[in-house]
Design a protein around this nucleic acid. Structure first.
Length: 200
DNA sequence: TAGTCACT
DNA sequence: ACAT
């Protein structure tokens, strides 16, 4: 494993997953899911997204960016659930608090191409990723897009920390495994990505 | 290259 | 590999 990568299988028990899911449903009620599109081309993503916390990640024809307001409602993003702040404190005790929690909703056919999380103004702080629902085939590469990749499963309750050398590793979701979600309806998957955006 | 598509 |  690359230094700075931590895969924590089953970090959240079923009860914690259900509690978190409830919090996320409340976030979605206040900040409805939207379909991001690619810069320039406008090609839609197959995942739908929303955010919570002071800043949210969005993609539209103008580009990728963090912004304080929901692109459709114009309202501020809902507050970050305390459970996520607690998780962050536990896994990144020395880091400043996260400013953004990107909530990605995957249907059974949704995918996410290889990419880097590099729209933040600092890379010194780890990214913390929480999986809920269907099991996904996750692909992890290196800092260069040409670096070799490997894939492994991310199941509900797994937590992934990308820090240090792994902070700028390319990563993506190849596909979901059908029939693996007992938490989210319709074989869905939810990924929560906690990020510090500013150096703090 | 956070997208798709062709081909192996 | 494409094409923004």
């Amino acid at each position: 494993m690359p230094a700075g990568l931590r895969l924590l299988p089953g970090w959240l028990d079923r009860e914690a997953q259900q509690a978190l899911l409830g919090e996320i449903r409340a976030v979605v009620a206040a900040a409805p899911l939207f379909t991001p599109v690619m810069p320039r081309t406008g090609t839609p993503f197959s995942v739908r997204m929303t955010n919570c916390g002071p800043l949210g990640w969005v993609s539209d024809r103008a580009g990728y960016r963090y912004q304080p307001l929901h692109p459709v409602t114009g309202q501020p993003w809902p507050a970050m659930p305390q459970a996520l702040l607690d998780l962050w404190r536990e896994l990144a005790p020395d880091a400043p608090l996260p400013e953004a929690c990107l909530v990605n909703f995957y249907g059974p056919k949704a995918r996410m191409g290889l990419h880097q999380d590099k729209d933040e103004a600092t890379f010194e702080v780890p990214v913390v990723s929480v999986s809920l629902g269907a099991t996904a085939l996750f692909r992890l590469g290196g800092r260069s897009r040409k670096d070799p990749t490997r894939s492994f499963r991310l199941a509900s309750g797994d937590v992934l920390v990308l820090g240090g050398e792994a902070r700028l590793a390319h990563h993506g979701i190849d596909r979901l495994l059908s029939g693996t979600s007992t938490l989210v309806r319709d074989d869905g998957r939810i990924n929560l990505t906690l990020r510090r955006v500013t150096p703090g």
